[in-house]
Write a protein that binds this DNA or RNA. Structure first.
Lengths: 181, 181
DNA sequence: GTCTATATAGGGATAGAC
DNA sequence: GTCTATCCCTATATAGAC
């Protein structure tokens, strides 16, 4: 068993239970590793596990969402690829967003910098893509913000209503929001 | 000291720390009442406190957001009044949304019905208002969903970026989203 | 109605055997 | 590298005095 094998399982627990709800007992049950074994991989304990989880997800986004956004294709195609990455990650919204659950309570103090950096990076890249279509920097930034709000809001709606349609629709409307079709 | 006096303080703790993060110690510190005194008001303990908090907020929304939405004024004015209620409640997004923080982990099991009912009620009322402007039921529902996504997403963005502008802009754009200006 | 004191369980974390 | 056993602290909850 390696760190890379347990991390996705830890990710899932933190996504679904949040930082305080992600108890060592649950992390242990999910991974099949006893608490002491988890401490073998993460000497910093739960806090380090959460930090590693955020880093893991940030890397995943880099590869599957941010890199496509920076490709040499036309804006519309890049946005399309981003959408595919989002659908793959959030599974139509069935998977809660780490950004949202980790920005609460104690966790928000511990990881605020990591969270803010990730979000701002995403916002910056999106803004640049939109700007390439010829709009002003301000307009581009607002559209990028609108797009992220839509995605984040959709994730909340899906969680509460147990209905994945809002997420699917939000994703499908990203091109319209960003490119003003 | 009465239940009505402590409830707003409990609301604040649950909003900022979530269900698992809202420890009795924090609830005690915030209210100035010792734990045993909190149990005097809420014999069902923390679970009942959370439930009462959700009910309190639902009542507040009924009075300050939902009732205005059902007035005899034209749709635009009613939406304007809803926006004022939202601004008052969320303080430009500085106050996290209970719907979002309570739909995580254990709390999501305990309170899912209450949360879903509140959200669906809001969605229904908004849909009706939009429908009065002459659009189809489907279009009205989609716009209502868009509006709520925008608000919820804005609250996440504000929490993570420590910048209230997205929320203010989201609120100001509600008429456009709902009435398609 | 509010308190101190206390009971009981669960949380995070560590020691040390294998 | 994984485990059992254990430590200490915090969390929820209760008993009973004032």
């Amino acid at each position: 068993m390696s760190k890379e094998q347990v991390l996705p399982q830890l990710v899932s627990v933190f996504q679904h239970y949040g930082y305080e709800g992600a108890t060592l007992a649950r992390l242990s049950d999910t991974t099949g590793l006893k608490k002491a074994s988890l401490y073998h991989y993460f000497q910093g304990g739960k806090e380090q596990m959460a930090s590693a989880v955020l880093e893991y997800v940030a890397d995943w986004f880099d590869k599957n969402v941010f890199t496509p956004l920076q490709s040499s294709q036309p804006p519309r195609e890049r946005i399309q690829e981003m959408s595919q990455g989002l659908e793959e990650f959030y599974h139509s919204g069935e998977v809660p967003c780490l950004l949202s659950v980790m920005s609460v309570g104690e966790a928000n103090n511990l990881f605020h910098q990591q969270l803010e950096a990730s979000l701002k990076h995403w916002l910056d890249l999106l803004t640049k893509v939109v700007q390439e279509t010829g709009v002003t920097a301000d307009t581009a930034k607002q559209r990028a913000e609108d797009a992220l709000m839509m995605v984040q809001g959709a994730l909340v709606l899906v969680r509460v209503t147990n209905n994945t349609q809002p997420f699917k629709r939000a994703i499908s409307r990203l091109p319209k929001i960003l490119l003003d079709d």
